[in-house]
Computed example of a mutant assay.
Amino acid sequence: MDIDSFWELIEECRRQAQGPDGRLAWLRGALSQRSPAEVVQFQARLDEVTHEAFTWDLWAAADQIFGGWCSDDGFCSFGLWMVGLGREAFTQAVADPDALAATPEVQALVGRPREVWNDDWPGWESLDYVAMEAYGILAGVEDECGEAFYEAVDAELGGGGDNSGPLGEQWDVRCEDEAARKLPRLHAMFPLR
């Protein structure tokens, strides 16, 4: 599965199902109809694109949306959620994190208390496990740790993932002037005060 096929599957998932659970179910079913090699390749492409989003500027955008603080795990989940927005929105956000302000998914959060975001929450951690689940279905095994799957993904990626920190220069959205300059729309939509 090349990058275009990966994004086509994500886009089809968006068309076929609503909400994170419905999309996961659809995606799990679609991946379960493919070869184990394609399922591994799907995960490898997912790992590659989420690595593209591993930047300090996008982390700051997540911080702004979440009210001034986003944990390590929260940011990983946020990057997976961005994949679920589709290729165009994802690519625009990687190039300019403030572009997230134009997405309907982010606009739907404005003015609502975080406690009621529920299915609209900008995080999708379970996307990171759907390929492993489909692989288990295809292999007919319940490998809870996914060792064979992750070994295959590692081999697909050429071994040894990149464990470096986020790209770019770290900055803090609690510095109002910097946040207003770097994320003007998100800063206005999700004020910290």
Rank of each mutant, 00 (worst) to 15 (best):
A30H: 07
A30K: 08
L31A: 05
S32I: 04
Q33M: 11
Q33I: 03
R34M: 15
S35Q: 11
S35H: 06
P36R: 05
P36T: 04
A37G: 12
A37S: 14
E38Y: 06
Q41N: 15
Q41P: 06
Q41L: 15
Q41W: 11
F42Y: 10
F42Q: 03
F42I: 08
A44K: 06
R45I: 06
R45V: 02
R45Y: 02
D47S: 15
D47T: 14
T50N: 09
H51D: 14
E52S: 10
A53Y: 01
F54G: 02
T55N: 05
W56A: 11
W56K: 06
L58P: 06
W59T: 02
W59M: 14
A60P: 02
A61Y: 04
D63R: 01
D63M: 10
I65H: 00
I65R: 03
I65L: 05
F66E: 14
G67D: 09
G68F: 04
G68A: 12
C70T: 12
C70F: 09
S71T: 15
S71Y: 09
S71M: 12
D72T: 14
D72K: 10
D73F: 11
F75P: 10
C76W: 08
S77Q: 03
S77C: 08
S77D: 11
F78P: 06
G79F: 00
G79D: 13
L80K: 04
W81Y: 06
W81G: 00
W81E: 14
G84M: 07
L85P: 01
G86H: 02
R87C: 04
E88V: 04
F90Y: 03
T91L: 04
Q92D: 15
A93W: 00
V94M: 01
V94R: 00
A95M: 02
A95E: 12
D96L: 00
P97E: 10
L100P: 00
L100N: 06
L100W: 05
A102W: 01
A102R: 13
A102N: 10
P104H: 09
P104W: 05
E105G: 00
E105F: 05
V106C: 07
Q107Y: 07
L109S: 14
V110C: 14
G111F: 09
G111V: 08
R112N: 14
P113F: 07
P113W: 02
P113Y: 09
P113D: 15
R114K: 09
R114D: 12
E115W: 03
V116A: 11
V116F: 06
W117K: 08
W117T: 11
W117Y: 13
D119K: 12
D119S: 14
D120C: 09
D120A: 15
D120I: 01
P122T: 06
G123R: 01
G123S: 14
W124T: 05
W124G: 02
E125Y: 13
S126V: 14
Y129P: 04
V130E: 12
M132Q: 15
M132W: 13
E133A: 15
E133V: 14
I137P: 00
I137V: 15
L138V: 07
L138Y: 10
